[in-house]
Design a protein around this nucleic acid. Structure first.
Lengths: 339, 339
DNA sequence: AATCGTACATGAATCGATTCAGATCTGATT
DNA sequence: AATCAGATCTGAATCGATTCATGTACGATT
């Protein structure tokens, strides 16, 4: 049995196709009588609207695309969930694409989304996709940058102030009595890394008391790199250990935590304090619950989707930058030294 | 400037629309001359195929839907990534929907996917959606169950043998010298939980030496529940402690690890061995790297997508059950007692 | 020269929802 | 009775890619 079309519904209800369409899209202009008859017919035939036909005629699309840079990182998982959650409220579905920092895949997904004529695109960009996004916009597909500030204001963006977050994290370490601080992070091509380090330096410079800060570079923001960095610290003579670590993200911090175990005893927090960034779910779940700078990941996704919907429904919309402040979450990993 | 249509391309290239369509869909039946001219025109006009029109005419869709039960769990994140990765190979995009164990959302997404006329649906089902899936199939939208065996064989499915996994996990604990084993898990409405417990009992019964097994019930498969269960164990007199724990999944196991820390010293593995299930990325990243039963999560997603594509392209396809065996991953958390 | 086969090109018809100009009806007003 | 406004309904035209019956061209075969 072929699926029922709007024509079948019209016939079954004894009205015209135009009326059925009106019942579905502008019920105010239709008599109550027609509404009930059409709804009954829809029920009886199990009619489901054909989205392809609606899109073709120029109606609004009910999908948005989300291109994510690193699907491994739970942070992005949470952002996607936030966006998806908000989308479902509007009867919109999210087309999900993961680029794994691959320019070709990034392009592939944007092509796919363009063919689909999605309502709009959320993207945590990897390469320089401004020209590509401009072309999309010329076709009526707007984009919102996620986790990336749009410096020139050409696109809307939703991001977090990493500099201030870095400052807050290190300020907290200083406030809990630490004076020899190491920033662990890299590579420095990643904007978030340099921003967080810059913030850390601000806190050090603002301090009344003398505070040392050193940089321990890593090759990536992963657990493995964090564990390796921890091992390198343990190789030093004990008097050269820092007394606090600020990791550029939680994956690194979890690795450090793992690396800083000697003989079943954890150096964190009493020998070395540790704070991360992102506050992924597993930060609280670590053997020593991890202090972290919380990014409102779900809220970032929700907000990005809302901005996108506004932008696509208002022809006079001007690109808008939304910046969240991270929040300090204090847990056991930065407890003061034992009394 | 309106987007170029196939008609514009035809005019620009000096051929008919039929020829342009043939160049795109069956280049074998077109002269080399036409192919180059059409491609040039496509290039110059920046033409992008309109997926809505193609779908409307009855062509195959380039999207599949994936309805996920618990977006929080990294295990499902990995499954989705696997599916998405395989899909991208075929130029297909994944519509992602998270139900959070909510029947209404599950229904909402299936409706949305039906309107979209997706190529097919991957679903880790929550409620009883067999009737709904039958209706979808009547409209030509096939479904593959993920992480759930289709007992009656009405649908294809891709899952993992949880009973055997449970057996292997406990066998490993016995092999490393443990004799007082506790299974930590719940609620028992979840099929995977009961299966894994059943497997655990098999291992105990097969053992030559006497082995005790007890069940510690939890309210959910979360880190918090695991930590609480760990605290309950510590309340007992020391001689009543089990010497090994088998957690129904890794989230619980990570919680247990956190709960079994006394005064900066970890009871795992030397006092109590611990093994989880799923082998999520954070299992290896724990302060004590966690032994676990690995589910080939990415492979599950990839396989499910492949089965779906086969099923939707072969009219004579018969539903097929794919069952993977989990793999024992041994890490520090089940190291033998100290010599 | 007539016939046939092959290769290739054409363009009208089609899918289903939406839109909108025009039709119809009802009741109120003059 | 004539006119009008408002409410409601109708159905043809439209979106763009695909398909397929039809047509054309040209070399090979008889």
């Amino acid at each position: 049995m072929a699926a029922a079309s709007i024509r079948d519904v019209a016939q079954h209800a004894g009205v015209s196709v135009g009326t059925v369409s009106n019942v579905l899209n502008r019920p105010g202009e239709v008599s109550a009588e027609s509404i009930t008859r059409v709804h009954r017919a829809i029920e009886e035939l199990g009619y489901v609207r054909n989205d392809a036909a609606r899109k073709l005629r120029g109606g609004v699309s009910t999908t948005v695309g989300f291109v994510v840079l690193d699907g491994q990182n739970p942070f992005f998982g949470d952002v996607v969930r936030g966006a998806e959650d908000e989308a479902s409220r509007h009867g919109i579905a999210v087309l999900y694409g993961n680029t794994d920092e691959d320019v070709a895949r990034e392009r592939m997904y944007l092509d796919l989304f363009e063919e689909q004529q999605v309502r709009g695109v959320l993207i945590s960009p990897y390469g320089d996709i401004h020209p590509r996004l401009e072309r999309l916009r010329a076709r009526g597909i707007h984009a919102v940058l996620v986790d990336r500030f749009s410096g020139d204001g050409r696109f809307s963006s939703v991001s977090v102030d990493s500099v201030e977050g870095g400052r807050m994290a290190v300020q907290h370490l200083i406030d809990t009595g630490r004076r020899r601080i190491a920033f662990v992070g890299g590579p420095f091509e990643i904007r978030q890394v340099t921003d967080r380090l810059a913030g850390a330096r601000v806190a050090v410079e603002n301090s009344d008391e003398p505070v040392d800060i050193e940089v321990i570079a890593t090759g990536a923001l992963t657990v493995a790199e964090g564990a390796a960095a921890g091992a390198r610290i343990l190789e030093r003579p004990r008097r050269d250990w820092p007394d606090a670590l600020f990791a550029a993200n939680d994956l690194l911090a979890l690795g450090l935590l793992q690396g800083l175990v000697v003989d079943g005893r954890m150096l964190v927090p009493h020998e070395i304090a540790l704070i991360g960034f992102d506050d992924i779910a597993f930060a609280a779940a670590a053997a020593v619950p991890l202090s972290s700078m919380r990014q409102p990941s779900g809220m970032i996704g929700r907000t990005a989707l809302r901005v996108l919907l506004e932008e696509t429904s208002d022809p006079d919309f001007i690109p808008r930058q939304t910046v969240f402040l991270p929040e300090l979450i204090v847990r056991a990993s930065t407890a003061p030294r034992r009394a």
